[in-house]
Amino acid sequence: MSQAADATPAAAPRSVIEARDLCLTFATNDGPVHALSDVDLTIRQGDFVSFIGPSGCGKTTFLRVIADLERPTSGTITVNGMTPEEARRARAYGYVFQAAALYPWRTIAGNIRLPIEIMGFSKPEQEKRIDRVLRLVELDGFGKKYPWQLSGGMQQRASIARALAFDADLLLMDEPFGALDEIVRDHLNEQLLKLWRTTGKTIGFVTHSIPEAVYLSTRIVVMSPRPGRIVDVIESPLPLERPLDIRESPEFLAVAHRVREGLRAGHSYD
């Protein structure tokens, strides 16, 4: 379970997230739920890390711990060398939820403006950033539309733009494309990869889809439930340049196979 990749050599890029022996137990009416158990993980600057695993294995919980939306029961975690709370106050990350959660009373531009308005950017700076991120997610020209006038895929792109509008180097995405159809999803995956390469952000990405995880990631974290833990961390051998048809290459299929093995191993515990 402990991976060679976790021992970061001094020359490697600086680590953005370091989790050590992280445990989180929810006290529920039906007794304690061990959502995370002894999670050790290092995410380095510029990584694209996918979390994959069956429902209830703690993927969302781990992302929420990084985001200071949930407190660990024991263990340590740092984000940019700070506690998650300090990192949140320093606005170190953008979070994209499974639902776009756009405000219906704000236009697309107004929704993207929301975080930077809260963070106190000047008016001209706001406009500049809105323009930039709308172009980044290929929604230029849609700024004046209201959310209900856009398709589900476009709404999700708008919510990604909203998370990109401020200067967080870390992007946390919880099944952002889970509710979309395959074709839209392929397109958004391509876009996301391009965006990641051009912005150099660090991305933590939760998904249920093996091909999606393999296609996007530099590292894939395979998790298993009850208690939620990491069963495998896979370094992707794929090149950074990834056309969609890379998914038929033998390297791709080999990684996908290893992910599937990891998921199966996780399941055999119960």
Binding site: Y93, I118, M119
Partner: peptide, 14 residues
């Protein structure tokens, strides 16, 4: 406002 919208506000430390 649902949980996600409130969580979003928190992530921006509003």
């Amino acid at each position: 406002p649902d949980r996600i919208q409130l969580d979003l506000m928190r992530t921006w430390s509003a």
